[in-house]
Design a protein around this nucleic acid. Structure first.
Length: 1122
RNA sequence: GCCCCGGUGGUGGAAUUGGUAGACACGCAGGACUUAAAAUCCUGUGUCCUAACAGACGUACGGGUUCAAGUCCCGUCUGGGGUACCA
């Protein structure tokens, strides 16, 4: 019986499906093992041979773990919302659900052909309402939660509302957008709208204004990588930066936890590095630079005068003015006593009482000297923390705060007054009257506070709020010009042209906080508005970008850290001693950073601070084919859809395009309305029209697989407790900073809310490498091709050169076989990709000429020149001057990305048809280490196919089934057990390529001794079955087994079969191996040396001399040093 | 620029902890079987020198550590992937 893989494979695939061989239960006495694959997007192109690489590896692990007695969860499903289906819908009008359905069917068919052991009963699709119901449900949980920095986890928003009712927000330490402080009384006084607006600043998913890449022509927002050189990648339409109200996810709250969690994950180092970099923690400090001189002369007089009195914004003013007035009218006795001494310039300075500054009402303030005087009652003993925060904020604004207790004021008013006068005098000295009247302060963030004395200028982002305020009249025009330039540049050139240094001086100076020197303020677009404070203290000597800027504008470059050569380049390294730096001199960088932060904090110039690069993730999409966001708006305030009305199903629309006024496609839907009582479509409030991004559904799919049909919960507690997180995840590194960060974020969130008990989705993760395609190119010249009678150059093998020759065909275009084309003298050589299926071993197969002409009709009259002649219209003609060369027309191979457009896609179907699924599985593993990228070629596939035939033949004699029940011999058992050992080790370290080699070695050895013993071949089948399951099942059943091989226990390794009695020692001289000597095991080192030295061959190598030293490593090597 | 991963025969790759470099497979060459081809089997195959034995050289390049280096350290070159003015 021949090895008929087609018949065998289809039979077993059918049987596995019918008998639900790989159905997995959620309760089992066996230990659990969860192995998960990358979630595929079902694209129209179908699978190519690169896709199954990871799936085969994970399938081997899954099958291996079943043999090892684990209850294995190995599911598959589809990330089926997404852009390509929507694009296709826009072009053709076909509903994306239909396209998706077709594509999934094709994927499934291809996957089934490869013999994967997925539990298909657990399949999920993100676009299935039964699935996205729960995606929407999780969104609602996020909406109703906030991140408490004190407990360091997300909590339900009800707790926060209670806290507001009891204490206001002064004690709340939350990850939130910037929010004014308010008291409990104020909270209660706010109306619904005000309350909801404040809560929005705290929610884990929230509406906010965000800068996006808006493409008016497409009516949609584009991702950064969809924008190339300022225009949309698709269509080339202009893209502009636009501020848009968007749903966002507060992932930044998790920055520290996402970072810390990495230390405990068995992920590849490169992937963890990518995430660390993306999270981008930098420790440093904020630092305030005061503007020198009076208010900016470029401001109008009125504006400047007002500035001193307007110590808060209008919103706060409206909020607090009544209260301030009431407090003025009803002072406490102590306040009243003090006021009598402070009023009417009695102290020589002008005081105001109950003044609103920022979000506070202070008791007394002298604005010209920026001195705040507070009279504290007993209550302040209990709210010290709050007072400290308040003082800190006032300090930040440049005020000094002095506090007196009520008793002090009432009992000893004279001491209090003299204290206040002393403070006033002090302020007068430090800050000459009027100098800081405007109070303009530029705050910067720096990771190198040690280099504070190396600051030679300050640079603001062109978008920075202060730019307009501080620019002097003299530079006003130039600055405005620059800002216009930078804005345009940020749209178009900024991405493309990053090396170009641009900037503009503002005319303003700030005062160095330590040296008091004047420092010029510049604007430059190398400073990003969105990061840190949008301003940097430039230290050109020790920062490359500042250096380039300083060089370009000839600004000074003072060195403050020893080392490097600042004549040539910036010295960025955090190594060396500080110089020219006052109190930091002599310290090394690390110590100096600490010291500088201490000093900055002591002087209230700033604060030690940690900054993260990680931004909140924009969640809304102006698209159709995604999960609707379960939000409706009442008076413009967003509320979540009732849980009983989920899923909020995607509505039908007439077109998958934005509306005429730029609203997302969902705005086209009829009855896109909601009432909490009646549900969807019953009139009432308007629904949200944006949809969720692709990563929403994929951020929790690993949980749904555990309990895919649960209609009451997204996953049951029991299922989640049983399966826990993924034991092994296989995926590409391209998801490092997207999907793999979001899924960690959602898992942490779900844990915080008590829905699951683990906070990481996958314990171990391996990256599979990419399989690249090998394109086959053919080369042609275009010279003279306009004439129908052009004579091509033919190859004259004898003389090894081209000869122009008249041939009797009318010719347009000449293609040249690759091995001679480089000898062609013609600079205008071009190449086209031909279908890789037309090519074998870099040789174009002439039977495909008709297909070639069908695809390229313009080349129908081309000649294809080989060494021995040429093809014309598919027929071969010998060279007129003697046909001595080959008739093969060679192609030029080139490794490129596997893609339809390059005609180099190899579908796994073809391999399955030609060689079988087992061969495909083995061959993909045999190609090399899983994590390495490699080009696909089928050069070695015959070796793997041959191996399976050889395995088949072990069970047959002259095509007849032939199995012996005799006891196995020692060498047979040795071969088997060595293989068991190696395969086990290989699988455990995911070295699948070496296991295939080891199977080959084993089968070669057994073939050599003509082994057909059941006791050897049965265990061998089990260890091979994870790799080649079809042939294993077939032979297993032919051996008489009724049950599938899938759950047969993995054979136990028995060391005793491998015990040797001797070892063949390599004998090396000075590390170079010269000969081998077979010696019995268990000899002492001395005996070995004696035995070795006594050998004639060894003495011959010594050449009469005596060895200096003999090194003996038992069972390894003998090295003789001469 | 920065970060990460690589560089071993004609090719894919092996060498797991510093201990015989090139396992296994492809390709190539020669042979057997065959009218022939396919399939199958056998032999050889890192480079140089050699009739052969032997020998010399060899893991991108240059140094170093070691009895011993593909493996560890320093420097250089080079390929691939990621990322981008992140202060």
């Amino acid at each position: 019986m021949d090895y008929n893989f087609k018949e065998i494979e289809s039979r077993w695939q059918k049987r596995w499906a019918e008998q639900k061989t790989f159905k997995t239960e959620n309760n089992s006495s066996k230990p659990k093992y969860y192995v998960l694959d990358m979630f595929p997007y079902p694209s129209g192109a179908g699978l190519h041979v690169g896709h199954p690489l990871g799936y085969i590896a994970s399938d081997i692990i899954a099958r291996y773990k079943r043999h090892k007695g684990f209850n294995v969860l190995h599911p598959m499903g589809y990330d089926s919302f997404g852009l390509p289906a929507e694009q296709y819908a826009i072009q053709t009008g076909q509903h994306p659900a239909l396209t998706t359905e077709t594509n999934i069917a094709r994927y499934r068919e291809q996957l089934d052909k490869i013999g994967f052991s997925f539990d298909w009963d657990r399949e999920v699709r993100t676009s299935d309402p039964a699935y996205y119901k729960w995606t929407q449900w999780i969104f609602i949980q996020l909406f109703h939660s906030w991140y408490n920095n004190t407990s360091n986890k997300a909590e339900h928003i009800d707790g926060l509302i209670k806290e507001f009712e009891n204490n206001g927000n002064t004690k709340v330490n939350a990850a939130c957008s910037e929010t004014k402080q308010f008291t409990a009384a104020e909270w209660k006084a706010f109306n619904e709208q005000q309350q909801q607006e404040i809560l929005m600043n705290y929610r884990s998913t929230y509406l906010s204004e965000a800068w996006v890449n808006w493409c008016p022509a497409l009516g949609t927002v584009l991702a950064n990588d969809e924008v190339k050189d300022g225009v949309s990648e698709r269509g080339g339409h202009p893209v502009e930066r636009k501020l848009m109200k968007q749903w966002s996810m507060r992932i930044s709250a998790y920055a520290q936890r996402l970072l810390d969690g990495l230390d405990h994950l068995e992920w590849t180092e490169s992937l963890k590095e990518s995430q660390r970099y993306w999270i981008g923690k930098s420790e440093g400090c904020s630092l305030r630079f005061k503007l020198q001189g009076h208010l900016s002369p470029s401001l109008s007089k009125g504006e400047g005068e007002e500035a001193g009195y307007h110590t808060t914004d209008s919103q706060m003013w409206n909020l607090l003015q009544d209260k301030a007035l009431a407090m003025r009218k009803n002072p406490t006795p102590a306040e009243n006593a003090l006021w009598q001494y402070l009023r009417n310039n009695n102290t020589g300075s002008h005081f105001r009482r109950q003044q609103i500054i920022d979000r506070f009402i202070v008791d007394f303030v002298c604005l010209s000297k920026k001195l705040v005087v507070e009279a504290d009652g007993d209550i302040h003993d209990y709210q010290q923390e709050e007072d400290n925060a308040r003082t800190e904020r006032l300090n930040e604004l440049g005020y000094t705060v002095v506090r007196f207790r009520n008793e002090e004021i009432l009992s000893d008013i004279d001491t209090v007054i003299s204290e206040i006068k002393r403070e006033l005098a002090l302020k007068g000295k430090v800050l000459p009257s009027g100098e800081d009247l405007g109070g303009v302060v530029i705050e910067v963030f720096t990771t190198r506070p040690d280099t504070i004395f190396g600051v030679s200028f300050v640079t603001l982002a062109p978008e920075h709020d202060l730019v307009e305020k501080i620019t002097t009249a003299e530079y006003k025009t130039k600055v405005e010009e620059y800002i216009t330039f930078a804005k345009n540049r940020s749209e178009r050139e900024r991405q493309a042209d990053v090396k170009k240094i641009t900037g503009q001086f503002t005319g303003a100076y700030v005062i160095h906080p330590f040296s008091g020197k004047a420092i010029p303020v510049w604007i430059g677009d190398y400073v990003l508005a969105g990061y840190g404070t949008g301003a940097v203290m430039a230290v050109p000597a020790h920062d490359t970008r500042d250096y380039a800027f300083a060089r370009h504008f000839s600004l000074p470059i003072p060195q403050v850290v020893e080392g490097g050569d600042i004549e040539k380049e910036a010295y960025d390294a955090k190594e060396g001693k500080l110089i020219n730096s006052d109190f930091l001199n002599g310290l090394d960088v690390k110590a100096a950073i600490k010291r500088a932060i201490q000093e900055v904090e002591a002087k209230h110039l700033g604060k030690g601070k940690i900054n993260f690069r990680l931004r909140d993730a924009v969640f809304g999409r102006q698209r159709y084919w995604g999960e609707p966001i379960p939000i409706y708006y009442k008076n413009g305030i967003p509320y979540t859809v009732e849980e009983k009305h989920l899923p909020l199903e995607l509505p039908e629309v007439d077109k998958y395009l934005p509306t005429a006024d730029g609203e997302p496609p969902l705005a086209r839907a009829k009855d896109w309305t909601y009432s909490p009582l009646l549900g969807r479509g019953a009139g009432g409030e308007v629904l949200e029209t944006t949809t969720m991004p692709g990563w929403a559904g994929s951020s929790w799919y690993f949980l749904r697989y555990m309990d895919p049909h649960n209609e009451k919960e997204f996953v049951s507690k029991q299922a989640a407790d049983y399966w826990q997180n993924v034991d092994l995840y296989l995926g590409g590194s391209e998801h490092a900073t997207g999907h793999l960060l979001y899924v960690r974020f959602w898992t942490m969130f779900l844990k915080d809310m008590g829905f699951v008990t683990f906070d990481e989705p996958a314990k171990k993760l391996i990256n599979q490498g990419m399989i690249q395609g090998t394109s086959e190119k053919i080369i042609f010249t275009i010279a003279g091709t306009n004439s129908e009678t052009t004579s091509p150059y033919l190859w004259y093998e004898e003389e090894n050169k081209f000869v122009p020759t008249q041939i009797s065909h009318s010719v347009r275009r000449a293609f040249y076989s690759a091995e001679i084309s480089n000898l062609l003298y013609d600079t205008d050589k071009r190449e086209i990709n031909v279908d890789v299926n037309w090519v074998n071993n870099n040789t174009f197969n002439p039977i495909y000429f008709p297909e070639f002409f069908k695809r390229f009709p313009e080349y129908e009259t081309a000649v294809f020149i080989c060494k021995g002649g040429y093809y014309y219209k598919g027929t071969f003609y010998e060279n007129p001057f003697g046909a001595t060369g080959s008739r093969e027309f060679k192609t030029k191979p080139e490794v490129e990305k596997m893609s339809k457009s390059k005609w180099n896609v190899v579908s796994p179907d073809k391999i399955c048809d030609d060689f079988g699924a087992d061969t495909l599985r083995l061959y993909e593993m045999f190609l090399g280490p899983l994590e390495l990228s490699k080009p696909w070629n089928t050069n070695g596939i015959t070796g793997v196919a041959g191996f399976l035939k050889k395995l088949w033949r072990l069970f047959h004699n002259n095509n007849t089934w032939s199995i012996s029940e005799e006891a196995a011999t020692k060498p047979e058992l040795k071969a088997l057990h060595r293989t068991i050992k190696k395969i086990t080790e290989d699988i455990e370290r995911f070295s699948f390529n070496t296991s295939v080699s080891n199977f080959m070695i084993c089968v070669n050895e057994l073939t050599e001794v003509k082994c057909n013993k059941r006791s050897v071949l049965e265990p061998l089948l089990i260890i091979i079955s994870p790799y080649a399951p079809h042939i294993a099942e077939e032979l297993w059943s032919l051996l008489g087994h009724k049950e599938s091989i899938a759950y047969a226990p993995f054979p136990l390794f028995d060391e005793s079969y491998l015990v040797e009695s001797s070892f063949n020692y390599p004998i090396s001289f000075n590390g170079k191996t010269r000969l081998n000597i077979e010696l019995p095991l268990g000899l002492s080192n001395a005996d070995i040396e004696k035995e070795v030295m006594s050998r004639e061959e060894v003495q011959k190598h010594l050449n009469g001399g005596s060895p200096k030293k003999v090194i003996i490593v038992p069972n390894k090597i003998v090295n003789i040093v001469v």
